[in-house]
Design a protein around this nucleic acid. Structure first.
Ligand SMILES: Nc1ccn([C@H]2C[C@H](O)[C@@H](COP(=O)(O)OP(=O)(O)OP(=O)(O)O)O2)c(=O)n1
Length: 1043
DNA sequence: TCGCCGTGTTAG
DNA sequence: CATCGCTAACACGGCGA
């Protein structure tokens, strides 16, 4: 058995971006302040996988007999809280509740813990009970579940009842009748709706957040005291203060040289560029170098391969140590300086002994390893070493070769290594691997390791076991055994998020756990394709081929560091640079494209104005908008112009912009065979009459929109901040930016009405919102006013003039003939009233709450639509605690009761419909199944008791075959005999027995040696619990408690 | 049903 | 002083033709 290596890290970006939200982040600070002393240390020492935390929390806490205060509660945490999300997780679990990482509509969350909520989230969560963190702590102090409404975050006020929070109103009435002293309900709190960041909520979140940010803030060069500036300044003002420091300013996107210097130092940019270039290079090399696909031995079965995965050991770190041999045995990492908030790009194996990992923040790394030495990047050296490695690999005469990254390659060496005899393959392949390793080491003084297997999956896994500085071949007969012990996240394509979902929703942790789950069930958790992949991978199967390189489908450039703006024109300028960058990349690849997507990172609602990392993006929400052009382009002016109009559409306050990206898709060759571009350009001198017709059509659309919808939108006023000129105050108006570069010729081609409006607007200086358009220069931008209509779809409004001008200009300049009729733009956004004030997601989407951030774990999580919510309630209706039920909003409660009724009536029939597998083997609706000839629970207990006693006496753990038999039996008891209770009772009883023996053991020295055996039994019971839970979930029964 | 859009996840 | 949190591919759900 090869040594187990720790699973790959969680996505560093995720961890970094959610430093305060994630349970397992590189700062690890959540544990540091634990009031429950033992926990933090316990977990750190044991390196317990956090996804599996609940079971371990209970296990660790099993002796303490805490009251099950939160029994029946399913708790989720949103945003910054004190105690932290990690603390709350632990507290909820040890006091009998269930913690849910997800709000995906599939988990029936009963309470959301939050310190504050933004208006958007209040609407989204209006059907849930949103409570302050104190609800947890005070309930524990009181030793019982306190009424949640004493801790509610949303205080029912008049302004809110306007806002569709009917369920909350109901709730309130219910509880008031129930409560003894309704008047004691918390002091009045300002409606968070009117002002999202009340001082109260702000300081609450800062308290929590300080535990992470204090050091950074102390050293930050703010002129104003941080607190003051945070509390009272707009994001733009805050940025202005920050950028007043010329050094800082120079490090940001405001520096014209930013892209050059930034990309020059960004490791992730380098990694991405290198990879893209290598892919290109090998694409051509493959086709030119070897017509050798026919070299496969004739007797080699068509589906048989020998695959090598070659990977430098801790690449950057090895290069760093190469020129500093004195550090070879010291813990070393590579990063930008040794300061706390920089990232560890790579660390050597000495450092890994301490738990340091790639992607970790330096602060955490130094906590784990105080003597960690930080060395600088050497990007040129990486390229050189890499090219040595690839030269060696190219020289092998492999059937196929694929560059996975700068330091990593896949080889198909079937021709070189395959033989009918596996021992021969073993000898040949390990020999070849050794020679690769030696030659690369000679050339680079750095080690590569080689993993060998029958497919890509196996070879990649083998590399884990080969490292450091070794080779390892996964032999066909050991695949199954090896796979079983892996964490699911060790499988390629399975990362933090999917891993956590599998664990949370199906208690799947190890690859072995997957084997017992039918494919369809996997697919129902993680989706069709991923489920399929999981199913195959768990069995060691992988049908991908080496070197199957898809043609490039997109080109993009993005920046999410150093992005700070004070004013709109700075954004436009930077988008111009970014457009230039993208244009260059397109030109270098000789492609042009028709679809441009702008991606914006916006500071998350609750996130502090300054994130932990200096000039970092912090916790953000991501938004994107795309635009399809009339004809493909790579012209930076086109890109820039479109990008700017897309940004306007998103309506993000410039001070909150923390990242910008541009992506071109729908690519075609720049000099396509038919030379489409060129001919069109030559053939057509100017815009055609037809195009003008199209524009007129647009105008008519606009006018139709005018008359369509007369509902006054009162919220618009409150969300558009200040500065509405008196001229406009009496009219409803909106604004957009039209570049003045619009040439006069183009303007002349516009319909008269539009011409008039544009020229009118050139004289208008109104600014509706200084956030969106501060320091507007009359020369560079034009504000365009639409009179007197109140509720035009802002999409149409904000888009139209820009587009008309843009497209016409494009026509004029390029003479393109194919003017794409834009027709009716697809309604991306729901016509909801927040549109004017913020980028919209669907109003009822729980996706858009604050955990919906970069790298947030969790898949699509729309709030249940009507059908969906029926489905969901079915799954948990039976499991809801009566007490909880009473407290639920009326409509939800009714749904559950309905569902219960329905379930009681339909259960057997429903079940038969649902489970075709079972219905083939089972005739009776409730067959009675036997185990060892017994079916009565008492008899079964006897059998199990005998088994356990024998096992302990013989110092032998339970035999796997027996375990499987029992597992299968229990599963069928759940699904076929429909006696979940029996299965649960048996498992509980076994657990009890094992714990009994454990207790006895402490009193009896003779039993000392039985520890191993008992641990095996505990594992077995874990497995049984999982099996029963999984089966129960197929019947819609979640969160089965075994304690 | 298909394709598009916006969003999420993953790897290095 | 800090710090350099990129990029391409795939997957998925919702929506409209
Ligand atoms: N989050 C990450 C992961 C990787 N890298 C860079 C540094 C690594 O040296 C290089 C290669 O990545 P690997 O995943 O191959 O990791 P190492 O080569 O460092 O270590 P290992 O020996 O585990 O392959 O990519 C990075 O900058 N940031």
């Amino acid at each position: 058995m090869p040594p187990r290596h720790p699973p790959p890290l969680a996505n560093p970006k995720f961890a970094a971006a959610l430093a305060n939200h994630t349970f397992d982040n590189e700062d690890g600070a959540e544990y540091a302040g634990s009031e429950f002393g033992g926990f933090g240390e316990y977990f750190r020492n044991k390196k317990i996988k956090l996804q599996n935390l609940d079971a371990h929390i209970r296990e660790f806490d099993s002796g303490s007999e805490r009251p099950p205060i939160f029994k029946g509660c399913i708790v989720h945490v949103n945003g910054y809280t004190k105690p932290s999300i990690g603390e709350i997780h632990k507290l909820v679990v040890i006091y009998g509740g269930v913690f849910s990482q997800y709000m995906d509509g599939k988990t029936a969350v009963t309470h959301i813990i939050a310190s504050s909520l933004t208006p958007k989230k209040m609407v989204e969560f209006s059907r849930y009970r949103i409570v302050k963190p104190e609800w947890i702590t005070k309930s524990i102090e009181a030793g019982k579940l306190l009424p949640w409404h004493d801790f509610r975050v949303i205080q029912p006020t008049e302004s809110q009842t306007l806002l569709t929070i009917a369920p909350v109103v109901n709730q309130q009435e219910n509880e008031h009748t129930k409560r003894s002293n309704p008047s004691s309900v918390v002091s009045p709190v300002k409606s968070p709706l009117a002002k999202p960041h009340t001082p109260a909520t702000d300081s609450a979140s800062r308290t929590q957040q300080n535990t992470f940010d204090t050091p950074a803030r102390k050293s930050s060069p703010l002129i104003m005291p941080p607190k003051l500036s945070e509390k009272f300044s707009s994001p733009e003002e805050h940025n202005a203060v920050l950028l007043a420091n010329p050094n800082t300013r120079n490090s940001t996107v405001l520096n014209p040289e930013f892209l050059k210097t930034y990309y020059g130092q960004s490791r992730l940019h380098h990694l991405s560029t290198w990879k893209a270039n290598l892919k290109l290079k090998f694409q051509s090399q493959i086709s030119s170098s070897s017509p050798s696909a026919s070299k496969r031995p004739l007797d080699c079965p068509a589906d048989t391969r020998v695959i090598f995965h070659v990977d430098f050991d801790c690449f950057f770190a090895s290069i760093a140590v190469r020129s500093r041999p004195q550090y070879a045995d010291e813990p070393v990492c590579v990063g930008h300086g040794g300061n706390q908030n920089s990232e560890v790009a790579s660390c050597n194996y000495v450092a890994r002994e301490f738990g340091v990992r790639n992607g970790m923040w330096m602060r955490r790394a130094k906590e784990l390893c105080p003597d960690l030495i930080s060395l600088p990047y050497e990007f040129d050296a990486y390229e050189e070493a890499s090219s040595h490695m690839f030269n060696v690999l190219i020289g092998l005469g492999a059937d196929k070769i694929e560059a996975v990254s700068i330091d990593e390659a896949l080889l198909d060496v079937t021709s070189l290594c395959w033989s009918p005899n596996d021992d021969d393959i073993q000898t040949k392949s390990l020999g070849l691997a050794k020679s690769i390793r030696n030659r690369v080491f000679e050339l680079t003084q750095c080690h590569v390791s080689v993993g060998i297997g029958g497919n890509i999956l196996q070879s990649k896994l083998a590399t884990k076991w080969a490292k450091p500085a070794g080779q390892y071949r996964v032999r066909p007969n050991e695949i199954a055994q090896l796979m079983k012990g892996l964490q699911v996240e060790d499988l390629p394509g399975i990362g933090y998020s999917i891993g956590a979902q599998l664990n949370e929703r199906f208690h799947i942790d190890k690859v072995g756990d997957i084997l017992t789950v039918p494919k369809s069930k996997l697919q129902s958790i993680v989706g069709g394709k991923t489920g399929d992949k999981l199913y195959s991978y768990a069995r060691g199967e992988d049908f991908r081929e080496v070197g199957e390189i898809a043609i490039r489908k997109s080109v993009s450039a993005e920046v999410n560091w150093g992005v700070r703006f004070e004013a709109k024109e700075q954004v436009d300028t930077f988008l111009g640079s970014l457009a230039g960058e993208l244009s260059n990349r397109l030109t270098n690849l000789a492609v042009i494209g028709t679809n441009l997507t702008l991606k914006v990172y916006k500071r998350a609602e609750n996130a502090p104005l300054e994130p932990t990392k200096y000039l970092g993006c912090g916790e953000c929400d991501a938004f994107s908008r795309s635009y399809t052009t009339a004809s493909p382009t790579s012209d930076p002016r086109d890109i820039s112009r479109i990008a700017i109009s897309l940004l306007c559409k998103l309506q993000i306050p410039v001070g909150d912009i923390r990242g910008l990206g541009l992506q071109m898709t729908k690519l075609v060759s720049a000099h396509g065979e038919d030379g489409k571009q060129v001919t069109l350009f030559q053939a057509n001198g100017g815009p055609k009459k037809r195009d003008i017709e199209v524009v007129k059509g647009k105008l008519e659309n606009l006018e139709a929109e005018y008359s369509k919808d007369n509902d006054p939108v009162s919220e618009i006023k409150s969300t558009m901040q200040q500065t509405i000129t008196s001229k406009l105050a009496t009219k409803q108006a909106t604004q957009y930016f039209v570049p003045t570069q619009v040439s006069e010729e183009v303007l002349r081609e516009l319909p008269e009405v539009i011409q008039k409006k544009i020229s009118e607007s050139r004289h208008s200086k109104c600014s509706l919102d200084h956030n969106f358009m501060p320091k507007l220069k009359e020369d560079s931008q034009v504000t365009f006013e639409i009179p007197s209509q109140s509720s035009i779809d802002p999409d149409v409004l904000s888009e139209l003039p820009v587009e008309i001008v843009k497209e016409l200009e494009e026509q004029y300049r390029e003479g393109t003939v194919t003017f794409r009729s834009p027709g009716k733009r697809r309604g991306i956004q729901e016509p909801n009233k927040w549109k004017f004030s913020r980028p919209t997601k669907k109003a009822n989407s729980s996706k858009s709450w604050s955990l919906n951030t970069i790298g947030r774990p969790g898949t699509d999580s729309k709030l249940p639509s009507h059908e969906k919510s029926n489905l969901d309630s079915r799954t948990w209706a039976l499991n809801v605690d009566e007490d909880i039920l009473r407290e639920l909003p009326e409509d939800i409660r009714n749904e559950i009761l309905e569902e219960r009724k329905r379930h009681l009536l339909n259960s057997p029939a429903e079940k038969q419909n649902e489970e075709s597998e079972a219905s083939t083997t089972i005739q009776l609706q409730h067959p009675i199944l036997t185990f060892q000839g017994k079916n009565q629970i008492d008899d079964l207990r006897d059998i199990l008791q005998t088994w356990l006693s024998a096992s302990v006496a013989e110092m032998q753990g339970p035999h796997m075959d027996d375990v499987h038999l029992l597992e299968k039996y229990l599963s069928r008891v759940v699904t076929e005999e429909k006696n979940l209770n029996k299965a649960v009772e048996l498992v509980k009883w076994m657990n009890f027995q094992v714990e009994n023996v454990l207790r006895e053991r402490e009193l009896d020295d003779n039993l000392e040696r039985s520890e191993e055996v008992l641990f095996e039994w505990l594992d077995t019971i874990d497995g049984l619990q999982k099996a029963v839970s999984i089966e129960a979930e197929t019947r819609g029964l979640y969160n089965i408690q075994f304690r």
